[in-house]
Amino acid sequence: MNSGAQSPVKEPILSVRNIKVYFPIQTAGLFSGTIPLKAVDGVDFDLLAGETLGVVGESGCGKSTLGRGILQLLELSDGNVVWMGNNIGGLSFREMKKYRKQLQIIFQDPLASLNPRMTIGDIIAEPLTVHYPELSAEERTQQVKDMMDRVGLLPLMINRYPHEFSGGQCQRIGVARAMILKPKLIVCDEPVSALDVSIQAQIINLIKGLQEDFGLSLIFISHDLSIVRHISHRIMVLYLGNAVEVADRKRLYNNPCHPYTQALISAVPIPDPDLEKAKQRIVLQGDLPSPLNPPSGCVFRTRCPLARDLCAREKPRLQQIDPDHQVACHFWQEAQDQRII
């Protein structure tokens, strides 16, 4: 038996295999047709019960699409999503309904994710009315109030409307709605990036606390490495719809092996001013290439300082370099050696 930090005999609660989400884009011109926009282009990962997987990447790297693809809110172009032993990829609305109880999502824009014409009591209760129509009105209200209390909202605010709350409170409402069915997995799609910095920590801690209480698994999507670092057990770095590095949180920070991850980490400010001055920032050249026309071979090669012929010819596969560490780079060893922080 392997005695790693996470024992490999543990069955994953969610297995994502080679999922792809392509959007057909209409081309302009006389001979118009559609070309695929490869938002997510073959991502694999496993998630254990109670684990948090952080997903980081620049905006436009496909991280939100990935989250929605897993929840079947977007149609998958390819690949499997296995949830507790059942493949849920491509299920119809009706077939998917029974899994919706266990799979929830928290959105980026707290106010936009709440129907402005409904009271927050109705908003939080909606999942109950859909999945447990047999509940009486009093039972439902009681559950809603309990949940409001749990997420730090005054239960007597139950008849108020979303616009009467602050951004942070709206996000608590969003969390309560996601939690009311006691799900097993929540996809958090940048849940704090629209909030004030002072509120961010409160919401993160709320989500963390709920995770401990209910044994939730989380997929935490963010562009902010320091937040992801705070909440995740493992982290996946996404670039142009591809996972370039997946590692245990500590390993990823202490020993990033992909040039892109290294660049991302070097951009995070260090609280210690001396260290901050001493460290080298790796500034990436150029812009994110268009996912309509991704580079051949390695998706990162247009901006990679180590790129060479092989990178253009052959796409690097995600390879296991350690029990808790996978990286997709032909020259990861070189990258690892060169790193100076």
């Binding site: 809110l73 919706r100 999502i105 959105f107 936009a112 909606e126 999942p127 859909v130």
Partner: peptide, 22 residues
């Protein structure tokens, strides 16, 4: 396109209810 419609989808609210309620 609003997120609360997506939230309703994620909860499994039926299309008819999405139109009438949301």
């Amino acid at each position: 396109k609003k997120e609360f419609i997506e939230a309703a989808h994620a909860t499994g609210v039926s299309t008819r209810k999405i139109i009438t309620r949301h």
